[in-house]
C-alpha cells in the first residue's frame, strides 16, 4: 500500500506479540487452501478468516507426486490482489530462502509445511529471524514446543493432509491436549525430566504446566472435510481450522465453505451443525489412512 507511513523508531514491527497476536485474530475462524484468485474470492465470500495460497491442494500433491515447492510468486501476488483477508503461503521445511521470498512479496503468514517436500533433514527455519510470522505443524506437544522455540507464532496439528480423513487430525489434537494435561499433573521436580523427554526448554515446559495451554494459538489441519469434522476439532480444543483439499475438491465449494465457517463458530450446537450440513453435495473422496504406507504419510515429515 503506497500510503503506508514510515514506522518511526518508537514503533517496532515483527515482535513476538505482533506475530502471535495476528494468530489470536484468526481464532474461531477457518483458513482455506486456494489455488486461484477465483477460489480465494469464494473463500472470502464464504467467511474465511484467511486463505492459504498454493499451486496444488494436498490431494493433488499426493496424486501427482514429485518434488513439491513454494508457489510461483506471480500466483501468490494474484491471490493477494484478489482478496482483502490475510494471505498465507507455504515454504518447505528448512527452506529459509523460500520463506524470505514469501516475506518479501508480503504474505501475512508463512506455513513451514510438511505438505511440501522438506528441504533440510536436520533443521527447521530459524523463524525468529523473520518479521513475518510462521505457523508450523505438530503431532505432539514436544514437536509443538520445538517449533515454538524456533520462533513459530502459531501451531496447527498436522493431521494427514489431502486424505479427507479426519482420523489423524483427531489423533494429533488429542495427543497435544493430552500431553498438556499430563504436564499440569506433574510436580516441579518431574518437570525437568518432562522437558528432557519433550526435547524442549524447561522454561517453556514449566510455563505450559502452569497455564495449561500453549503460549501460541493452536489450530487443527489435515483431513477436515465436513462441517461436523470442523466442529469436532473445535470440541477437542482446536482454536480454529485449516481446510485444505476438503473444500475445492468437493461438489459445491462455496456452500461447503460457508457451512464449515458456520459450524466452526457454533461447534457446540448440534442443531446448527445439522442445519448447515444439509444439501452440501458430494464431499471429497477420502483415503483410508490405515492403507497409506509410512513413506506417503506427510505427518512423518519434520520432527
Amino acid at each position: 500500500m503506497s500510503s503506508t507511513p514510515e514506522i518511526t523508531d518508537t514503533a517496532v514491527t515483527g515482535t513476538a506479540r505482533v506475530k502471535r497476536g495476528m494468530a489470536e485474530m484468526l481464532k474461531g475462524g477457518v483458513i482455506m487452501d486456494v489455488v486461484t484468485p477465483e477460489q480465494a474470492k469464494i473463500a472470502e465470500d464464504a467467511g474465511a478468516v484467511a486463505v492459504m495460497a498454493l499451486e496444488r491442494v494436498p490431494a493433488d500433491i499426493r496424486a501427482e507426486g514429485g518434488v513439491s515447492r513454494m508457489s510461483d510468486p506471480d500466483m501468490i501476488d494474484g491471490i493477494i490482489a484478489g482478496v482483502s483477508i490475510p494471505v498465507m503461503a507455504k515454504a518447505r521445511i528448512g527452506h529459509l530462502v523460500e520463506a524470505q521470498v514469501l516475506q518479501a512479496i508480503g504474505v501475512d503468514y508463512v506455513d513451514e509445511s510438511e505438505v511440501l517436500t522438506p528441504a533440510d533433514e536436520a533443521n527447521h527455519i530459524d523463524k525468529w529471524a523473520f518479521t513475518v510470522p510462521f505457523v508450523c505443524g505438530a503431532t505432539n506437544l514436544g514437536e509443538a514446543l520445538r517449533r515454538i522455540t524456533e520462533g513459530a507464532a502459531m501451531i496447527r496439528s498436522k493431521g494427514e493432509a489431502g486424505t479427507g480423513n479426519v482420523v489423524e487430525a483427531t489423533r494429533h489434537m488429542r495427543r497435544i491436549r493430552g500431553d498438556i494435561k499430563r504436564l499440569a499433573s506433574l510436580d516441579e521436580a518431574e518437570l525437568y525430566a518432562a522437558a528432557k523427554e519433550l526435547q524442549a526448554p524447561y522454561e517453556l515446559v514449566a510455563e505450559i504446566a502452569k497455564t495449561g495451554k500453549l503460549p501460541v494459538v493452536l489450530f487443527t489441519a489435515g483431513g477436515i472435510a465436513t462441517p461436523a469434522d470442523a466442529a469436532m476439532m473445535m470440541q477437542l480444543g482446536a482454536e480454529g481450522v485449516f481446510v485444505g483439499s476438503g473444500i475445492f475438491k468437493s461438489g459445491d465449494p462455496a456452500k461447503r465453505a460457508a457451512a464449515i465457517v458456520k459450524a466452526t463458530t457454533f461447534y457446540d450446537d448440534p442443531d446448527v451443525i445439522a442445519k448447515v450440513s444439509r444439501g452440501l453435495g458430494e464431499a471429497m473422496v477420502g483415503i483410508n489412512v490405515a492403507t497409506l504406507p509410512d513413506s506417503e504419510r506427510l505427518a512423518n515429515r519434520g520432527w
Binding site: 500500500m1 514506522i7 518511526t8 517496532v12 514491527t13 506479540r17 505482533v18 482483502s84
Partner: peptide, 30 residues
C-alpha cells in the same frame, strides 16, 4: 480505512497516550 497500516509485515507495536491516561503500549495488527 480497513488494513490501513498495511499487511502483517507492517504490523507493529508503539507507545501512545490514550484519553490522557498516560502512555501505553499499543499493538496494531493489519
Amino acid at each position: 480505512r480497513r488494513n490501513a497500516f498495511g499487511r502483517q509485515v507492517d504490523s507493529f507495536e508503539a507507545s501512545l497516550d490514550f484519553a490522557g491516561r498516560g502512555p501505553m503500549r499499543a499493538v496494531f495488527i493489519r
